[in-house]
Simulated assay, not measured.
Amino acid sequence: MILTRRAFTAALSLTGLGLLAGLSPLRLITEAMAQSAADVAKPVSLPDMALGPANAPVTITEFASMTCPHCAAFTEKVFPKIKSEYIDSGKIRFVFREFPLDVKAAAGSMLARCIAKDDAGKYFAVVDMLFRQQNEWVLKNTTETLTRIGKQAGLSQQQVEDCLKDQALLDKIAADQKYANEVLKVNSTPTFFLNGEMMKGEQSFEEFDKRIKSLLKS
């Protein structure tokens, strides 16, 4: 599947998000291959949003789309257990990176960045809220609902509008997505990397628990 600029622009007009423009085409690559931890950890266009110490022995990096129901299920059911068991105790660092699969996901990612600015804790809270209210803002009036969420988080109407037409922010999200796709071979969400080892798709806490314990022992 190729998401072309023409298709993206058409989607913008259909979803009422005409303020957004310019997401680079995403060429999906089918083969999945593990990358080195250095490739995954390489600085990208946007600052990483992460919880847990930078020197933790295990780093989990999630690539997610804000419109992905499997990503929402992970955030609701699995992430709290990982946080309680491993992040809060300082054993792992958890990094969240945007990989929008459509225009609405890009808009949700932009809003989360605008609300949180450089506050990782606030960013994760906004992402959690967007996932919990996913059916509302994805299936209904996207712009109206995102504006309401933005206002609930303290943004004004003007700040939400400015956020959703921030071309520089959108370009950075697109550049990071392109790197993830072309270098790390991410082509679906959610995709996780545990110290550079790829895990594709929604996973149970038990699977994460097993892999994390193995890495902590090594």
Score class of each variant (00 low, 15 high):
residue 172 K to M: 06
residue 26 L to H: 11
residue 53 P to C: 10
residue 142 T to M: 13
residue 194 L to T: 07
residue 199 M to S: 01
residue 63 F to W: 15
residue 12 L to A: 13
residue 192 F to D: 00
residue 178 K to D: 11
residue 19 L to I: 01
residue 54 A to H: 11
residue 29 I to M: 09
residue 61 T to I: 00
residue 133 Q to L: 13
residue 116 A to G: 07
residue 144 E to I: 13
residue 66 M to C: 02
residue 9 T to H: 09
residue 196 G to Y: 05
residue 2 I to H: 08
residue 44 V to R: 15
residue 200 K to P: 00
residue 60 I to E: 00
residue 147 T to W: 05
residue 212 I to Q: 03
residue 217 K to E: 15
residue 108 G to V: 05
residue 102 D to R: 10
residue 29 I to P: 01
residue 11 A to F: 06
residue 88 D to S: 14
residue 32 A to D: 12
residue 10 A to E: 15
residue 61 T to F: 05
residue 163 C to G: 08
residue 52 G to D: 05
residue 120 A to Y: 01
residue 41 A to M: 12
residue 217 K to N: 10
residue 154 G to Q: 04
residue 38 A to K: 13
residue 100 P to C: 10
residue 89 S to T: 15
residue 139 L to V: 00
residue 193 F to N: 01
residue 43 P to N: 12
residue 172 K to L: 04
residue 113 R to S: 11
residue 148 R to C: 02
residue 45 S to T: 08
residue 54 A to P: 02
residue 156 S to P: 04
residue 169 L to C: 08
residue 70 H to W: 11
residue 203 Q to D: 04
residue 211 R to I: 08
residue 214 S to G: 07
residue 158 Q to P: 01
residue 158 Q to K: 12
residue 47 P to E: 09
residue 124 F to D: 02
residue 212 I to K: 02
residue 95 V to F: 06
residue 48 D to S: 12
residue 91 K to I: 06
residue 201 G to A: 06
residue 77 K to C: 04
residue 135 N to P: 03
residue 104 K to E: 07
residue 114 C to I: 13
residue 208 F to L: 09
residue 100 P to S: 08
residue 48 D to E: 13
residue 8 F to I: 13
residue 38 A to D: 13
residue 27 R to N: 13
residue 181 N to W: 04
residue 190 P to S: 06
residue 153 A to G: 03
residue 21 A to E: 13
residue 177 Q to G: 11
residue 16 G to K: 14
residue 110 M to T: 07
residue 37 A to W: 08
residue 203 Q to F: 04
residue 152 Q to I: 07
residue 22 G to A: 14
residue 179 Y to V: 04
residue 214 S to K: 12
residue 191 T to Q: 07
residue 61 T to Y: 05
residue 185 K to M: 07
residue 123 Y to S: 11
residue 106 A to C: 12
residue 143 T to S: 14
residue 30 T to E: 15
residue 168 A to K: 15
residue 55 N to L: 09
residue 47 P to L: 13
residue 9 T to A: 12
residue 142 T to Q: 10
residue 203 Q to P: 03
residue 94 F to H: 08
residue 37 A to N: 07
residue 6 R to M: 09
residue 173 I to P: 01
residue 94 F to L: 06
residue 154 G to D: 12
residue 30 T to D: 10
residue 47 P to N: 14
residue 200 K to H: 00
residue 206 E to S: 12
residue 112 A to W: 00
residue 27 R to D: 12
residue 114 C to W: 08
residue 212 I to C: 10
residue 164 L to N: 05
residue 121 G to K: 12
residue 45 S to A: 14
residue 76 E to S: 15
residue 151 K to P: 00
residue 102 D to E: 14
residue 165 K to Q: 15
residue 24 S to A: 14
residue 9 T to L: 13
residue 73 A to K: 14
residue 145 T to A: 09
residue 40 V to T: 12
residue 214 S to W: 01
residue 154 G to E: 07
residue 159 Q to T: 01
residue 87 I to H: 01
residue 42 K to D: 05
residue 4 T to E: 12
residue 106 A to F: 08
residue 87 I to M: 12
residue 2 I to G: 09
residue 192 F to V: 10
residue 33 M to Y: 08
residue 182 E to D: 15
residue 150 G to N: 09
residue 66 M to G: 01
residue 109 S to N: 09
residue 128 D to H: 11
residue 162 D to A: 14
residue 37 A to I: 05
residue 184 L to R: 03
residue 172 K to T: 02
residue 204 S to C: 07
residue 34 A to R: 06
residue 99 F to Q: 01
residue 58 V to S: 06
residue 8 F to Y: 15
residue 165 K to D: 10
residue 12 L to N: 07
residue 64 A to M: 08
